[in-house]
Nucleic acid binder design. Structure first.
Lengths: 357, 357
DNA sequence: CTGAAAGCGCTTACAG
DNA sequence: CTGAAAGCGCTTACAG
């Protein structure tokens, strides 16, 4: 009898509590509501939802039943006040056009949720200064900030790091020692490899299409390319700026292809611009890819290997890069780590640099 | 004198308070810390950061100064406990490969942040059942849930709606009356338009490449296509399932192109599959696009209009769709609204359905 | 194993 | 305009 009484849910109370209030002020059940229904203390409810907490199986079961009946879910925001952990990571993403970054987002997202983190995201103009939006994220007590094709002021990076919130640049390095972390491919080495490949393939007048002049990534790729060509006794490459956009790259490609001595190969700072360059070369200038003009990209996005393009490119190891990014976050208190992580990539030779003549 | 005293910051206190604690337990400044430094009550600090709160300009200024000195930021998570608003919207996104969805994400993100909402995001396998992850988002007290190429159980949708959390399917409709909302293009009408266009262009044996058989979107497109062809006295189209993936579409395209009576036109349930179909038709079968085989997609992603493809497609009005999605969220208490919003699209005729012979 | 109580960082009536 | 106090929904020592 008493046994039954103890384990029974109070159905009258349940009916009262689940009657829909007017939609305007419909509020979710709280631990207190559950406690009342289950006939236990609110602490017990909390324990029932805390792994490893000291609670008897019987009590836990009653709480879980009551919680289920009320549709109760613990409010992790309230919990975070006490534990000091939100398990939220802020992420700013520019350049949503570019599959490289959306793929990166996907990989970061799945890895982070595997470790119990959630992503608070905003998209932005590519390469935009996102201080304002980051400040906004900070109000949500994110535990780390990831920048994908976005930048923030050194001052704000400093502030974040000082309050224990690591800032991680993905695919871009830190300028100066403002304290952020970064994960990149070995851009300079990749560009050197590309330069050597072009020389070997017999191209003699290579050009470079930069992204932004102040992008560390574009700079490193240009540096490696330039130096290797010059070291090999070639003329320094022509350079145009494609701004990492469709419009910018289209214009840059036109400028390069109408230059006095037209280049016979173009290394673009990323695949996105390289693919556009191929479009322009083929369809506006009637050039045959590979023979009339070699084109090389950087990233190895899926489109690069489509039969229509066959773009030679330097593959960035997205998985490794995502892993290393997440490492920075899940080992927040581990101070013994390098500031700039560089992972090796790999040259993918395809028909866009194959001369059949 | 007294004036100066009142407005001066207590520098000794400041020094003590900003001395870096050991990194392990570095905690952020609270309203209480600011209050102490500014010599006001904690309520005053709160008011200084609340628009329209009753506070004198002088007090506000002192508070702001102190806050600045301490690097204080109000914790909106704590605030949300009281206001009952988190301003967080949950978003599940499958199919990160498909630019249509990443573009949608971008548009949703910028519109929502314009209205003060933040996005709590997770990515998932395309078309995955995401109940578990949505439950996770619910713990964060999201105020709405948007599904981009992901699905959740009717049961969970119901639960959400009952607790006042609208669930909005983007580019998919609700099956049954489980209570969610949806925003789509007029898929059936679009497919009809496409069928008529193919007939007019002189194609006689059209086929359909479905996404998933249980996708409402794919179904609606198939229905409009099928019915229009049959009404026009054509044979019902062959159908293969491309699963909305690169691999699936590649296989489906091969099956269609090796069919007994090879179709002379293929309508694919989205652009992504249509572009792959073009790749297969051209490079594996050596077919000339437009003449030997007409290909049509749906969505009008940027790649569709690239010169290499020139894909005829039905343009989905992403801006309007994003607007309507956000409407559902920012007017949460407005009950007088339709459940399924349908916005009109537009046929884009390009060379993939142009016969020059 | 359990409950009462303190407290996380805030907002908001309530008096003054 | 201001502060003391209650309380948002939780967790976590602390006694029992």
């Amino acid at each position: 009898m008493e046994h039954e009484f103890i384990y029974a849910i109070d159905h009258e109370a349940l009916t009262m509590m689940t009657q829909s209030p007017p939609p305007s002020q419909r509020s979710l059940a709280t631990a207190h509501d559950v406690a009342r229904l289950a006939g236990v203390s609110q602490s017990a409810v909390s324990r029932a939802f805390t792994d490893g907490a000291s609670i008897s199986p019987a009590t836990r079961e009653r709480v879980i039943d009551a919680a289920h009946a009320l549709g109760y879910r613990p409010n992790v925001l309230a919990r975070s006040l006490i534990t000091g952990q939100t398990k939220i990571v802020g992420l700013a993403m520019g350049n949503v056009d570019n599959p490289f970054f959306t793929l990166a987002l996907d990989k970061l997202s799945s890895r982070l949720s595997g470790r119990g983190y959630r992503l608070l995201l905003f998209t932005t103009e590519m390469n935009a200064r996102v201080d304002e939006q980051i400040e906004e994220l900070l109000l949500y007590r994110v535990e780390a900030v990831i920048l994908l094709s976005a930048t923030m002021s050194s001052k704000l990076v400093c502030e974040c790091q000082k309050s224990g919130i690591p800032v991680i640049l993905f695919n871009r390095t830190v300028t100066g020692s403002n304290g952020g972390y970064s994960v990149t491919t070995d851009n300079e080495h990749g560009a050197r490899t590309i330069a050597l490949h072009l020389i070997e393939a017999g191209y003699t007048r290579a050009a470079f299409m930069a992204g932004y002049l102040d992008s560390s990534t574009s700079q490193a790729r240009e540096r490696g390319f330039f130096e290797t060509l010059v070291e090999s006794g070639r003329a320094p490459p022509l350079r145009e700026v494609g701004e990492f956009t469709v419009e910018g790259a289209t214009l840059a490609a036109r400028r390069l292809l109408t230059a006095g001595r037209r280049p016979d190969a173009i290394f673009c700072a990323n695949d996105h611009m390289a693919l556009i360059t191929i479009e322009v070369a083929r369809h506006e200038f009637g050039l045959e890819l590979g023979n009339d003009i070699g084109v090389v990209g950087f990233d190895d996005i899926p489109l690069a290997s489509w039969a229509s393009f066959g773009l030679t490119t330097y593959s960035q190891p997205l998985d490794a890069m995502a892993d290393r990014t997440v490492d920075f976050i899940s080992r927040i208190d581990d101070m013994a780590r390098e500031q700039n992580v560089v992972v090796p990539g790999k040259l993918m030779i395809r028909k866009s640099t194959r001369r059949s003549s």
